[in-house]
């Protein structure tokens, strides 16, 4: 995309409204500085994240995808993150089989009070993606 600065890579985050989205808010309120690559999509629960969203993003231009939900047992909807954990783990193991480094996809648990953990996660994941470089060569853009 034209707006992406030369230094930035495309990272998409799916964040549970009840915990990690709030954790990102907490980080904001505390002014915890973070890299700017991440774009956040708010979802009601990590259990709402169909692994296909991750695939869709990775196939269509994302260099990394982050999914963050409530800690196991703390799901606002009791069990949503338990389903998420199974589905996302399955996907994480499948990606390298397709030739996509599984480091490009991370799923984790961050609560609304964990602003610092959020900052750390964004910083570390962004670093990891930069280390891997762009996923797409732009070869297909002409199609």
């Amino acid at each position: 995309m034209s707006e992406v600065g030369p230094k930035e890579l495309r990272i998409v985050g799916f964040l549970c409204n009840w915990c990690s989205y709030g954790g990102a808010d907490t980080a904001g309120v505390s002014r915890f500085k973070q890299p700017t690559d991440l774009r956040i999509i708010r979802v009601p629960c990590s259990g709402r994240v169909d692994p296909l969203f991750v695939v869709k993003a990775l196939l269509n231009g994302a260099d990394g995808v982050l999914v963050s939900g409530c800690h196991p047992r703390d799901c606002h909807y009791s069990d949503g993150n338990f389903y998420a954990r199974r589905r996302l783990e399955m996907l994480k193991r499948l990606l390298p089989f397709l030739g996509i480094d599984d480091k490009r996809f991370h799923y984790t648990w961050i609560s609304a009070s964990e602003g610092q953990r959020w900052q750390q996660t964004v910083t570390d994941f962004t670093k990891q993606i930069h280390k891997l470089g762009p996923l797409h060569s732009g070869k297909e853009a002409q199609q």
């Binding site: 999509i41 979802v43 259990g47 709402r48 994302a62 606002h76 909807y77």
Partner: peptide
């Protein structure tokens, strides 16, 4: 919560306000 929506293979059950198309629109935008 939308667990049903991400379970349904044919996209027939959609969580209002967080439908597949709404989230896909966000993904596609970036």
């Amino acid at each position: 919560c939308g667990v049903c929506t991400s379970t349904c293979p044919c996209g027939a059950i959609q969580l209002s306000h967080f439908t597949d198309n709404q989230l896909l629109a966000e993904v596609n935008a970036i």
